[in-house]
């Protein structure tokens, strides 16, 4: 299977939900509406495209823009050896998106990380709790407006 077949199939099935398709570093980037994420992802995971691996799931903070957060999903198909990037933008006031835990199991911790670092809410996530930072940590440290010098020690510092 070639990349073009997948792109064509996506264009046919989700024509009004796909905003943009471009190529960077040899991989396709598909920019979609956030509401259609689950549909598109399930379509890609099913045969014959078989994107059985979610390589990475992360977030980018574009502070100052109305659609502030950009979710990035890296997919990989073991049977066809094709990689695909899916991007979607979330508004600052309501940074929430469907959870992919029902599709890929490893999305669980990746989404917990994105929640921890950026404060993205994942609807349908079974256990949305901080992954790296401790309980009682305030704010989301990878957001651009988190103060650079802010420290939140758990115990009293000696100096």
């Amino acid at each position: 299977m070639e990349k073009e077949e997948i792109i064509d199939a996506l264009k046919q099935n989700f024509s009004e939900k796909i905003r943009d398709i471009s190529v960077q570093f040899g991989d396709e980037i598909i920019v979609i509406d956030r509401n259609s994420l689950l549909d598109i992802v399930k379509f890609l995971k099913a045969e014959p495209y078989a994107f059985t691996m979610l390589l990475d799931l992360t977030c980018v903070d574009y502070k100052g823009e109305e659609l502030r957060f950009e979710m990035v999903y890296h997919l990989f198909s073991l049977s066809t050896n094709i990689r695909l990037r899916i991007k979607t933008r979330l508004p600052e006031k309501d940074p929430s998106i469907d959870s992919l835990t029902s599709v890929w199991k490893n999305a669980n911790w990746l989404e917990r990380e994105a929640y921890d670092m950026f404060g993205i809410r994942f609807d349908g996530h079974p256990y949305l709790r901080r992954l790296f930072m401790y309980d009682g940590f305030e704010g989301h440290p990878l957001r651009k407006d988190y103060p650079l010098r802010k420290r939140q020690p758990r115990i009293r510092m000696r100096k």
Binding site: P141, K150, R158
Partner: peptide, 14 residues
């Protein structure tokens, strides 16, 4: 030098 790391363990113990 960031939000996660203690800036030297002498902040905690001698």
């Amino acid at each position: 030098d960031n939000y996660a790391v203690v800036q030297g363990i002498d902040n905690i113990i001698p």
